[in-house]
């Protein structure tokens, strides 16, 4: 009897915790969308931000976010992929390799505020890059490197060895095998990694704040400061000026993340289907 009661209580707890998790998600989504979506219109999306002039749109933040994302990916994606290739295809187990892997784990664990502090002293002050798109992008590039390397490496390792052996047996050398056989089979996985990184970049605040700065302008060069959408939301929330705008910015951020998640899921599914040959 007692056994049965415990059984029921545990089952109830398992169900309710899962339902609670889902409920929290929907509470956040529902509340932010309900309050924010009505404020999103073409005018809000396409005017710049100058409250003194009555302009309260997010155009420059959208462009700023996209520019920062583009520049970060430009630096980080090649470096991340090549690093993953080395780790997956060339590296032999050694002390040095464990150190390398440990440093990647460490980079992944460093909180974004510390990336902000580092980016500020190193890129902004020491290298004299000022608060700029470039400072922000270089800082974020280091930050997303672990995510890129790990996801890409997993993908490369899931490419069957028979592919490599077949190519080598046909007389192709290692490099040709890598670029003609292994990398093409890994492209969807690498895409997933890139899409997940985009999400990280869009949502990042602390590290951007102290490196790319906060000036709400469309950056015309990599040396100019800009303000991303997430940093803008932080400003609006902290100042408590206009909640409608803040809700709208939050809603846009969530929509972007949701779209990126769907895209990542889609590429992953495509990859699985192709691998299993269905």
């Amino acid at each position: 009897m007692k056994r049965k009661v415990t059984e029921i209580i545990l089952r109830f707890l398992l169900w309710s915790c899962t339902l609670l998790t889902i409920a929290i998600l929907f509470l956040i989504l529902g509340y932010v969308f309900f309050q924010g979506l009505p404020h999103i219109n073409l005018r809000f999306l396409t005017t710049s931000y100058a409250p003194g002039l009555g302009l309260e749109g997010v155009w420059s933040m959208i462009i700023g976010t996209l520019a920062l994302m583009g520049l970060t990916l430009l630096v980080s994606v090649p470096a991340g992929i090549f690093a993953a290739i080395y780790l997956s295809e060339y590296a032999k187990p050694s002390r040095f390799l464990s150190l390398l892997r440990f440093s990647i784990e460490c980079l992944a664990g460093i909180p974004s505020i510390l990336y902000g502090l580092f980016g500020f002293t190193f890129f902004v002050v020491f290298l004299k890059l000022q608060f700029s798109l470039l400072s922000g992008a270089l800082t974020l590039a280091i930050m997303i490197l672990p995510l890129l390397i790990r996801t890409t490496e997993e993908t490369l390792q899931s490419v069957p060895d028979s592919f490599r052996e077949g190519s080598l047996a046909l007389g192709a050398n290692r490099l040709v095998t890598l670029f003609r056989i292994v990398l093409p089979s890994a492209i969807p996985g690498i895409l997933t990694a890139v899409i997940l990184s985009m999400g990280r970049i869009i949502g990042e605040t602390a590290a951007v704040y102290y490196t790319a700065g906060t000036v709400p302008q469309v950056p015309l060069s990599t040396a100019e400061s800009t303000r991303t959408l997430a940093v803008h939301l932080y400003f609006l929330a902290k100042e408590g000026l206009d909640q409608g705008q803040a809700f709208a910015a939050a809603a846009i951020l969530i929509l972007l993340i949701a779209a990126l998640n769907l895209a990542a899921q889609g590429t992953a599914n495509y990859f699985n289907r192709r691998l299993t040959g269905k």
Partner: peptide, 24 residues
């Protein structure tokens, strides 16, 4: 069905969580 929802929760930017906490 549930796993993507949890991934979405994981992907929500921290500043959005902060804002949500602040207003609700």
């Amino acid at each position: 069905l549930i796993r993507p929802l949890i991934q979405l929760l994981a992907g929500i930017p921290s500043v959005v969580f902060g804002f949500f906490g602040l207003v609700l």
